[in-house]
Structure formats: C-alpha cells, structure tokens
Design a protein around this nucleic acid. Structure first.
Lengths: 398, 398
DNA sequence: ATCGTTTGTCTAGTGGATGAACAAAGTTTA
DNA sequence: TAAACTTTGTTCATCCACTAGACAAACGAT
C-alpha cells in the first residue's frame, strides 16, 4: 500500500507559489499582472505570493517598466544570484567542476586531469575542486545550495555508488561522505542521466519530453527521459544499454555477457580496431582518441573508415532503442560527438534502412550541444531544482 | 510552454474525494473512522465526502458492524455494481469480450473465433459481441460506463489504429466509430499495454511498479509499466520490441529490418522451425501451436527442443530489456505462457549467464496468471479508471 | 451502574483563493 | 489640455474546504 496521501489545503499555496516562481523564472522580466494572466491565478493571489518571494530574496523588483497604455508595470526579475550550485562531472581520467547561478549559468569552472588514481587520491582531488569553487562563489542570500556529482557508474536510489567499473569503485557512499563534510544537500547521479538532464535543460533537448541521451565515451551509457522525467528503473540501474546484446555469441564482455553494444560502438572499440588494423600515429606514442581524430582530420581513409564503422554500430543500437522507447529525440553526447562529421552519415543510413517507418515520424537525431559540460551542468541543475522544491516554504535568507 | 496549470482550491476536494473512494475500494468493508485514520483526513471531512459518495451511489452503507470496545461502526462498501465496463481483446483470429463490474470482476464473457476476415466482417462481429454484452448487463445506476478495445497493433494517442499488420489494418479510427455508435467513452489500446495493465491490476503484477509484460503470440509485443504507469512513447508506438535486433545481418523481417527478435522467439519461429525440421503431427493436418504442444506433452524430444530454443531466444531479448529498463518483474504472457514448463529453464539459464548481477537483484520472472484474459480485463480496467477520473465531480445516478 | 472507548455529526474557526472596488499612473482622443 | 479609457497592483469582503474540538450515541469492561 502506498503511504502516498493526497491531502490538505496549504499544499495549494505551496504549489501556486512554485508556479509563480517558475513563471517568473521562465519569462522574466515580467509584471505581476502578466504572471496572473499566464498562470490563471487571481491578481491578488499573485500579489501576495510575489511579496513573499521578494521577502525571501528569490526575486527582485526593478521598478516601473514601459507602459502599454495604462499604469506602468513593476518589473519582476528572478534573482538568479540568490544562491549558487556546484556540479561535478567525475570522469575516468578527469574531474570537471562548475559553479552555476540559480539559472544554471556557468560562473566558474575547473578541470583536473589524471590517470590511474586510487579512490583516496581521486577523492582528494574532488574535495579540492569543490573547495576551489566554494572560494570563488560570490556572497549571496543562500550561498551554495548543494553539491551534485555525476559518476560513470550505477547509483542506487539513496545515492550510493554501487559499481563504477572504469574507476574500479564499488559500494561507495559518496553522498554521505560529502554531506557530512560540507553539511549541504548532495546529489549523486549517473553521468548519462545527468548529461540527459543537462541537454534537456540547456542544450538541444529543450523542446522534447522523450529523449534518449547516448553518452559514448570509453563505454556507452544511456540517460532516458520519458514523459519529461528521468527514468531510473527499479534500483536506479536503468540505462545499462551499453551492455545490450547486438550480436548473439559475439565478443566476450567483462560484464559476463556476449556481443555487448559497447564492444562495437564506443571509443574502446575504435581503439581496438585501430590497433588490429595496425594503424600507427606518431611512433612510440600510444594510440588515443585524439590521435585518431587528427589522422581522420588529415584525410586518412582507413581511420575515417573506422569512425564510420562506429557510426554504423551506433546505428544498430540506437535502432533498438528507438523501437523500444519511441522517443522524439536521440542525442549523441560525450567525446564521440566531436566526430559527428564521420559518424552521422553511416548512423543515419543504418537507421533509415532498419527503423520502422512510423518510428521515424517526428524523430530527431542530434549531437550534443553542451559537449563535455552536459553532465556537470545537469547535476548542478538537479541541485537547484532540489533547492526550490524544499524552499517554497519560507526560509530565511541572510 | 506547457499550459499545465497547478491551480485552485477545490482541486483539493476532488483529490480528497478520490482518495476516500480509492481507500474504500481497496479496504472495504470499512468504517468512516478507519478511512479517516488511513488517509490522514479529518473525521468531519471524511463524513461529508462519504455522504456525497453515498448520494452518487458509488458506495453503500450496510449498517452497523462489530464494535471494538465502543460505538459500533457503520460499514461502508464499494458499490461495485453501480456500473459495468466492457473490455474486448481483438485478436488475429478471435474476439474475446468481457463484461466486468466496477471492481473488474468478470461477469459475462463471449469468445468468437474466425480466420482471415475482412475489416467489415470483423467489425460486424465486434459490434455483435458488444451488443451481446450490453444485453446481459444488469441494470445499474450508471449502466455501461465505457468500452475498451485491445488491438494487436500500434495505436496513436487519439485512439486511431495506425497499423495492425496481422489484421492487415491501417489507419482505422475505431474509437470515433464506436463512440458514435454507442455514445459512450471508448478506449483503444495496444494489446500488450492492455495485458500489462491487466496483470498489474489483477494478476501476478499486483505488487510491482516497474513491469515488462512480454506478450508472445504469433509476434511479440511488449507492454511497459514504468514508475507504475504505462509508458507509450512519443506517438504511442513504444513497445515495438518484437522488432529489436538480436542478430546483426540476421533473418530478413517484413518490417524491413534484419534479425528481429520475433523471428527467433515467437510462435511464428516455433512453427517455422518445426517445418524446417520436418516434424510431422497428424498427417494432412497443418502444423499448429496446439499440435506441437501435444507432441511435446507426449514427450517428443525434438519438439521439446524446439520449445527450449524459443525459451533461449526469449532470454536473449528479455536480457536486453532488463538491461534497459531494470524492471522488478518480467511477465511472459499470451499463449506461449502455457508452455512454461519447457521454456522456463533455458530462459532463466540464458539470463543468469548474461544479465549483470546487479540487475538480477530484486528481479522476478513470472508467467501470466490471467492467461488469455489479461488484455480484455486490462482495457476494461482502463475504462473504469477513466470513469472515476471524470466522475469524482458529482454526476447524477439514475 | 459507572467509566472509558469508539464512532460519527456538528459547529466554530482558519487559511487561502476569488471577485470587485479602487487608487495610481499611464495613453488616447476630442 | 481636459476628459475618457487602460493597465497595474492593492485592499477588502466573501467563499470554500479542511481542521479541531465538543458532543451524543452506542458499546465493552469492571
């Protein structure tokens, strides 16, 4: 039995206050009268809610605006600097941290690169990145409203990192650790989910409600936005589409399965194929995504073919995804997005041949807009949303 | 911009009235006091809402019950016969119609079999099935509250059947036709979605919120319940998992794709393989699911192997589904469910080998409980739910 | 017989939305 | 330039739904 209770009457106020605030955020600068007509609320109701929001410093009044044939409106603005959010993309060999205002604008950022570090070393770098952003955050009414971390692995619903294979982490409760250290709300989210949310809020996914975000790095992660919300599955383990079987009795994967998609369509596959074909970049230098990218850029036919092959296999998996989710949009994100020019064509060709006609109606394939920042901005946005959800009841600004 | 407005204050009443009604339905027989404590609402509030529900004939008062040390409670019951619902499973070679009360109990049913009929002939049979159930419905306060149809094909959000390949139907607006003919609310739903809903409401899926219902008949359809709600995708075309690729460059499918799952794991595949192996049943008789079932039942090793092979391939696709959706439960439904004894083992074996360990936690594979009735009962339930959604504001019973 | 309990109704009170009136500050028109 | 209309935002009386608490009815326990 659900303990879900749809109760009382001052829920109405909370909801309406939320609605007013969201309307101001979306359409600011705006007058009280306009808010009333947009929301359908009474002018008086809006007036009183607005005055509370002003008290809470969440919005500003910038004085009279231009008249449209009557009394001049008092212009309201969202006070986007009433607080700040920290979003971290914790990658396999980098940490990207951003500091954003309450609108999600990137105010400060810092990237640290590394290779093969232990958990202790990485967490030290993580803490110093957070500290760095803390120090650079302007003073504000609410200060830092929370910390969000995107991780390349599976996260349970209570924020424990259960398995991050590429980091070699297992069962780490980063949420508890950070909450204790900083005494702030902390959100841990899968990197692909965070990226999907970032693209939806700030990138190419703005106008869509059913989005499949495919994060192609060394592995493949997928973030699903269904009916406008992230879908995490039962234990928060969804989106493990990198381990979808696309070839029965195919290559052996370390996950125990065979024929997994990410063995055919990720950076990992690209590098392996390049090695097998004996493609050489600079002598004595390890082959890498960047070096292959340069080779292709210089017109090396063999390398371009490798990228095209990745595109083709991406198409196979994406085709499955489309037949499963019937999304409005598929977004290819993470590093591979930079190779769009070679990947796009074979991918689309595979899709046109294989996807059911009625799935192609209103379907769009896009490449990431925020590029490497989508996950960090996405978790920062999650933090902001959580802040507002708990903050529509009056809270004291400084 | 969404026109979604979270507004006013008598929404509260509607919600609470819904809550009270649902509580009574779930836990009847029950007293007003118990409803109050279960919902968290005030006794007075419950009293007034209950009196409205009594006026609307949606609940009954059966007089005093047993005391537990104080005044005897007045026992409330859900008036499950205040109205009736019609649910139809429109199959490829049959029509199954059920008449249910408002609790979804099967009151009357009628099945018609046929082969290779035109749209006109089928719709005639459909109408006569509906008429049959109409005539047998008891008189009640609200009469028949609506008609629901489950169809083996894709249905758009406004109820148009876009493509039902096995019926050879295309772009048929059955909803408009029925609404006009019967002047009642009509719900058209994909058969797999309906089946999923049926199993969730009345079958093995009762206690789960993330369910994948795999309907294996001649083809494979999938109904997805995510976060407790049916997920239909952008255009209502989701769940076309029958056309998921499980073998690159595999068998050619009439959908234009290659290596589609349903070519390997459905009745269609079973029959084809039987033919190829030269398995003979009764001479001069066409091979069929039933005849193969009998052969296997009699211990024919070859035939059993065919079923096991289906189980294995079902496992491959289900494995993909699990890695995608991380559901709590997978339900195998439709006719193939009757072959559980041969299918179950190879299916589970494939899964244990291939599914990620953390996906197997809290995961359950079940076979359908309602068997052939899940889709019909499912749409009937949809109709009932739609009735209550529009009926929590007062409506006049007869 | 008395006391405590449970149930359901009733009444007064409260919080929040609404509509209308109104003042303030504009623009448009004659 | 004055009069008339418009637009904005506040105030106030009213309404609606929920709540708390009092109360009566009906029961069990001692």
């Amino acid at each position: 039995m659900k303990t879900l209770q749809t109760w009382n009457q001052h829920v109405v106020k909370k909801e309406n206050k939320s609605l007013v605030l969201e309307t101001i955020i979306r359409t600011s600068p705006i007058s009280r009268a306009k808010v009333a007509s947009l929301t359908g609320l009474n002018k008086g109701t809006v007036s009183s809610l607005v005055s509370e929001l002003l008290d809470e410093k969440l919005i500003n009044d910038s004085g009279p605006g231009k008249s449209s044939g009557g009394r001049r409106p008092l212009i309201l603005h969202f006070n986007k600097t009433a607080g700040f959010s920290i979003g971290i993309d914790l990658g396999v060999n980098y940490i990207l941290g951003v500091l954003t205002d309450l609108e999600g604008n990137n105010i400060q950022e810092k990237t640290v690169y590394f290779t093969n570090l232990s958990y202790e070393e990485i967490s030290k770098k993580l803490f110093s990145t957070i500290d760095y952003l803390f120090e650079r955050s302007p003073t504000s009414a609410y200060g830092i409203v929370g910390i969000g971390i995107g991780v390349p692995g599976t996260v349970s619903k209570d924020g424990e990192i259960l398995l991050a294979p590429n980091l070699d982490w297992k069962n780490i409760n980063l949420k508890a650790i950070l909450q204790k250290k900083y005494n702030l709300p902390v959100i841990i989210e899968n990197e692909a989910n965070a990226g999907a949310h970032g693209e939806k809020r700030f990138g190419v996914g703005k106008d869509f409600d059913n989005i499949v975000y495919v994060s192609v790095g060394m592995g493949i992660g997928v973030g699903l936005i269904l009916n406008g919300n992230i879908y995490k599955g039962n234990n928060g383990f969804s989106g493990e589409l990198g381990h979808m079987t696309i070839e029965v009795n195919g290559l052996k994967c370390r996950c125990g399965n065979e024929g997994c998609w990410e063995l055919y369509a990720s950076e990992q596959a690209l590098l392996k194929n390049a090695l097998q074909q004996g493609i050489t970049t600079s002598p004595n230098k390890e082959i890498s995504f960047e070096s292959l990218y340069k080779l292709a850029e210089n017109g090396d036919k063999e390398t371009i073919k490798l990228f095209e092959q990745i595109g083709d296999y991406l198409g196979v998996g994406i085709n499955n995804i489309i037949n499963t989710f019937n999304p409005q949009q598929v977004i290819i994100g993470n590093r591979i997005a930079s190779a769009q020019k070679w990947i796009q064509e074979p991918l689309k060709k595979r899709m046109i041949n294989q996807t059911l006609w009625f799935q192609q109606r209103d379907l769009q394939i896009d490449f990431s807009e925020l590029s490497t920042h989508s996950a960090a901005l996405g978790v920062a946005a999650y933090v902001i949303e959580a802040f507002f959800k708990n903050d529509t009841q009056p809270k004291n600004a400084i």
